[in-house]
């Protein structure tokens, strides 16, 4: 067992963990932060994407011990005080989710893109999301939503 200290969504946790414990299982099974789901075992699907010290990572391919001393932001840490972020709002307004299972990862991947490239083209959005699979939407509305969030367009309901 290894002792780690990790800040997740603003709260610092100290825990003894097995070295092999995957970050996503630490979040889900130990911390009860089940907003971040698991969709594959080969790091292809991206549903488990979180922010680790300011960049997106796939939490199924990071060991909890590797995050000792780091800060993690999950989908559960995005909305502050019940207020959705512009990206979350855009996903809602553009119908960028159906079953919602890929949504946490899509949001974290898109958020990462917009930090580096606040005004992406549609092609750049598709490139940035290539590691996040969705089986419901055909991606078109996800791309629209990310572009809308980037331009902060308001969409009439």
């Amino acid at each position: 067992m290894t002792r780690i200290s990790v800040k997740v969504d603003g709260t610092t946790y100290e825990d003894e963990v097995e070295p092999r414990l995957l970050l996503v299982h630490y979040l889900r099974d130990r911390l009860g932060l089940t907003g971040t789901p698991v969709g594959c075992d080969t790091s292809n699907c991206g549903t488990c994407t979180v922010d680790l010290d300011g960049v997106s990572v796939k939490s199924c391919s990071v060991l909890a011990v590797q995050t000792d001393g780091c800060a993690v932001t999950t989908v559960q840490g995005l909305a502050q005080g019940g207020e959705l972020t512009a990206l979350q709002r855009a996903f809602h307004e553009r119908h960028a989710l159906q079953c919602g299972y890929c949504t946490p990862g899509m949001l974290m991947a898109a958020r990462d893109l917009l930090k580096e490239n606040p005004r992406p083209t549609a092609g750049e959005v598709r490139h940035a999301l290539e590691g996040n699979l969705c089986r419901c939407t055909g991606y078109q509305n996800i791309v629209r939503a990310v572009l809308a969030a980037a331009s902060d367009e308001e969409v009439p309901a």
Partner: peptide
């Protein structure tokens, strides 16, 4: 009418009830 979905708020914030979440 293209009503925005009632389902979305939970799914967008990770307040989900996937079966594997159940403890």
């Amino acid at each position: 009418r293209s009503r925005l979905r009632k389902e979305d708020a939970r799914l967008l914030t990770g307040q989900t009830t996937w079966t594997d979440n159940i403890q």
